[in-house]
Design a protein around this nucleic acid. Structure first.
Length: 318
DNA sequence: CATTCGTGGGG
DNA sequence: TCCCCAAGAAT
């Protein structure tokens, strides 16, 4: 495979790889979760919304919000007809509200440029706001059966272990990983489709980042990481800073704005303490004590178009 | 290429 | 309790 020597070189379609295909696909058919966006008859819009929500957010937290969005906005036009503020409110506490902003913008673009039909090609999808390499490949594959090369964090981890013999993939995706994923993917269209979702599911349920369930793995015998004696990661992931960051304050401000239909005076953020979660309460105390950070965080939200400044306060964008 | 950007459940 | 990190994208 590209950029790699060793036992897997030039043997992508060897019997071993075909056996891996069969084992992981079979495992998937027996063990996959019954997720609503995977059910029969689900269209591009449903898959697209799920993919946006699943960007850096666990499935269990997405499920109820996705159900509500599908009930309320069954088509892109339905969301596009609503002001951005409604999308931000319905996004709730999923996190990264810019995803809701970009999904709303994508719905508008689909409505105006594609007559309300989610585009089927990876290229067209990739041009939509909030759609990167992974999401474009995922929608094309899962919704429309395109044999795209899907590379998400789960697939990267499975490939790093199974084929690379490493505990974890590199911190940031490399071109060589895409090349390897393309190389080990079945040529057949339907087979590639099943393979993509199967490897992803294996990574989500068995080949997890922490304490992988190797005793339940269908390709334990083929795994290069197991064969190498399960070596430890060659780097230490650097944690995501949170306490005292602008992100925390931005989240607190957004939590307040979501609960108001009218502009909220900046000096009255603290008046809503009673209705906030503990996390928001803590963040709001910071809003009070560190005005410079509050101003910086608010400026960021205004710049990002997630909040609007009026004469009488701050509100969500309409 | 490194940073920034939310949230909350589980190890 | 604390820390990890989860179907990433944009800059």
């Amino acid at each position: 495979m590209a950029g790699e020597s060793g036992p897997w070189s030039l043997v992508s379609y060897s019997s071993v790889v075909q056996q891996i295909h069969h084992r992981i696909n079979h495992w998937y058919l027996q063990n996959s979760r019954d997720l609503p966006w995977r059910r029969e008859g689900v269209g591009g819009w449903e898959v697209m919304v799920s993919e946006f929500m699943l960007q850096q957010t666990p499935v269990v937290r997405v499920l109820p919000v996705w159900e509500e969005w599908m009930r309320r906005w069954p088509r892109p036009q339905d969301l596009a007809a609503e002001p951005l503020s409604e999308a931000l409110k319905a996004w709730g506490r999923l996190g990264y509200p810019r995803r809701a902003q970009r999904l709303h913008a994508a719905a508008v673009e689909i409505t105006t440029e594609y007559n309300g039909e989610v585009p089927r090609t990876e290229e067209a999808l990739r041009a939509l706001p909030g759609v990167g390499d992974y999401t474009a490949a995922a929608i094309a594959c899962f919704a429309f059966g395109e044999p795209t090369v899907v590379v998400d964090t789960n697939i990267r981890r499975v490939h790093a272990r199974l084929f690379g013999g490493m505990a974890l993939p590199e911190p940031s995706p490399r071109a060589s990983e895409f090349a390897r994923a393309k190389d080990v993917q079945p040529a057949d269209r339907a087979a590639a489709n099943l393979w993509n979702v199967s490897v992803m599911e294996l990574g989500a349920l068995v080949c997890t980042a922490r304490s992988p369930k190797c005793d339940a793995c269908p390709v334990f015998e083929q795994c290069a990481w197991i064969a190498a004696g399960q070596p430890a990661p060659h780097y230490t992931p650097k944690g995501q800073a949170w306490k005292g960051t602008d992100r925390q304050v931005r989240g607190a401000i957004m939590a307040v704005l979501r609960e108001h239909d009218h502009p909220v005076p900046q000096d009255s953020f603290l008046s809503d303490l009673g209705r906030q979660s503990h996390a928001t309460y803590v963040a709001l105390e910071k809003l009070q004590s560190e005005s410079s950070q509050r101003e910086r965080a608010l400026a960021g939200l205004l710049k990002d178009g997630l909040a609007v400044l009026e004469d009488d306060g701050v509100r969500l964008p309409s």
